[in-house]
Design a protein around this nucleic acid. Sequence first.
DNA 1: GATGATTTCGCAATTATCTTGCATCATTGG
DNA 2: CCAATGATGCAAGATAATTGCGAAATCATC
Lengths: 155, 155
Amino acid sequence: MINIDRFDSRILRALQRDARLTLGALAEAVSLSPSQCSRRIARLEKEGIIEGHALRLNPEALGLKVTAFIFLSVDKGRMAAPREAVAELLARDEVIDCHTVTGSHDFILRVVVADLAELSRFLSTTISPMAGIRDIATQVAMDTLKVNGPLRVTP
Amino acid sequence: MINIDRFDSRILRALQRDARLTLGALAEAVSLSPSQCSRRIARLEKEGIIEGHALRLNPEALGLKVTAFIFLSVDKGRMAAPREAVAELLARDEVIDCHTVTGSHDFILRVVVADLAELSRFLSTTISPMAGIRDIATQVAMDTLKVNGPLRVTP
DNA sequence: GATGATTTCGCAATTATCTTGCATCATTGG
DNA sequence: CCAATGATGCAAGATAATTGCGAAATCATC
């Protein structure tokens, strides 16, 4: 965590709302000149604070109607074995997020698929056959109340 | 889900990798002219497939070291009562995602905070006092293997 | 405080990028 | 087969991003 002054902070907040703000518009929003905004953004990128720009897509509009959370437990003493299975998992485009977690499960996946049929197929074809899986639990999202909210930037 | 032809698909895939691709670079990547790419992107926005552009920030670089999942159950027959509590929750900048889900819990939250102390404070100060909460479970992420992976675009 | 070094700043010119009118080509539905 | 509609590339015009530069602000040291 490097220096984030008040202007960097404003810039990041504004760009989190809309990353396509013009330097002119951004400059006005943060009370700085466009040229200086440009230089600060370049610095934030160089420092690794800004990692890149992503498209916000509407999954429903792409026919992806179902979001689900999948909780996986692996056999103890075999955390090494699933290593490559995990790599395979991460490569699948159904898998949007993947974390290892404390608690009763080892992995939490967020998957986005077309429908329940595809979710079922994904579970039985891709997850179940994985070596070393001890337990699978699935929770289907009914409503998505907030996705990818902006990160807090201090100060 | 409107028409997504092969060019739209390529455009969306390329822009999911890097939303700042220049129209010239994009055009080359998808074998189309820059002007046509511009028009197709405008159409994808108008159709609501592209919702906007987001910044990909490095949470660690911002001092946000801890990701956790919080599972909430609310008292049955009181799904209405927490309505405004939920709105409050969504407004908090610790809360990155929020879904209602099937299964033993009602809500899944993904929160990102500075450290475990802040997580603890968030749980005891913000979540626990919420009216109608029946149960809280928390799982702390140890590793983030994939975040916000690209959505599949067909064809 | 004073002072020199360093950084940050805004302006303006340059460079790069995006958008749009237009003529042509492809596709679709009679 | 033809007309109508839509898609395309090109090139010109419009916007936006970057950078050199001198001025202003900040900082460290005395």
